[in-house]
């Protein structure tokens, strides 16, 4: 039972990490557009990255809600 709980937690952690990797690649392209001048994120890049994740989640939630409302009519 403890082990089952452990594996459920690990699986969720894996999902979050794998989604973090995909979002980092996506938002990096949108937000880090100028040449690299140093190893830190500047203020604009940092807020762009956070907004990118939040807006992607908005789109994601809107899509799932709309598809559920359709009930798979289209196909």
């Amino acid at each position: 039972a403890e082990l089952r709980q452990f594996f459920a937690n690990e699986e969720q952690k894996t999902k979050i990490q794998s989604q973090t990797h995909a979002l980092t690649e996506l938002c990096w392209k949108k937000c880090v557009t100028s040449n690299i001048k140093n190893g830190a994120l500047d203020k604009n890049e940092q807020s762009c990255l956070a907004n990118c994740v939040d807006r992607f989640m908005d789109v994601n939630i809107a899509t799932m809600r709309a598809l559920a409302a359709m009930g798979g009519r289209q196909h």
Binding site: T24, V32, I36, L49, V53, D54
Partner: peptide, 23 residues
């Protein structure tokens, strides 16, 4: 560039991860 880019990418990863978990 590669060294700074790597540091920046890891910082971006952490920012994305933090925001995603919060959300």
């Amino acid at each position: 560039c590669v060294v700074q880019c790597m540091e920046k990418y890891i910082a971006a990863w952490n920012e994305v991860n933090r925001t995603y978990i919060r959300r």
